[in-house]
């Protein structure tokens, strides 16, 4: 019956839990209210945030976006760059550790390819500094290093 569907991601929890996750604000902020009834205090509520993937308007977020943008032209399979990865840490889904197969191509090719090929989610995100060619790929340890900014 009640399920939650995702545009492009597998639901991380069972449907019922997923449903609660997505409708929390309805349960707490909609529904009938009767003045003479007491309402339970929501102070200290265990807030289940709608999502860890929100776009936060902060300089820190901007720098991560910029870094990802700069990385796009140096990496082949940049189509898999997702916002959870940009925001770093726990929310990011784990991605494969396969090494990048080919040398970087020209900017235009890379972008065209990324747009055309959609998401190749298994491809590793290799860290790369702007303006440098890729060092021999290591085993993913450095992939979230921030660009010096």
């Amino acid at each position: 019956m009640t399920t939650t569907m995702y545009a492009d991601e597998v639901a991380p929890c069972p449907p019922r839990a997923g449903t609660l996750y997505d409708v929390l604000e309805l349960i707490l902020d909609r529904g009938m209210v009767i003045d003479v009834f007491i309402r339970v205090s929501l102070v200290g509520i265990e807030i289940l945030k709608i999502d860890a993937r929100i776009v936060v308007a902060s300089v820190d977020t901007y720098l991560r976006f910029a870094e990802a943008c700069n990385r796009l032209d140096l990496e082949r399979d940049s189509g898999s760059t997702t916002i959870p990865e940009l925001l770093g840490g726990g929310a990011a889904k784990s991605i494969g550790k396969r090494k990048v197969r080919k040398a970087a191509e020209s900017v235009g090719d890379t972008v065209r390819k990324a747009v055309g090929s959609g998401d190749d989610e298994d491809e590793d995100e290799q860290e790369e500094r702007p303006k440098k060619r890729r060092a021999p790929a290591r085993d993913g340890a450095s992939r979230r290093r921030r660009a010096e900014a």
């Binding site: 308007a57 976006f65 700069n70 032209d73």
Partner: peptide, 21 residues
């Protein structure tokens, strides 16, 4: 993004990231 690539600096990166967001 082209501007950042020509001259990578903090301000330019912030502007680029903000535009993306």
């Amino acid at each position: 993004r082209a501007a950042v690539r020509r001259r990578p600096d903090y301000e330019a990166n912030v502007r680029l990231g903000e535009a993306v967001a």
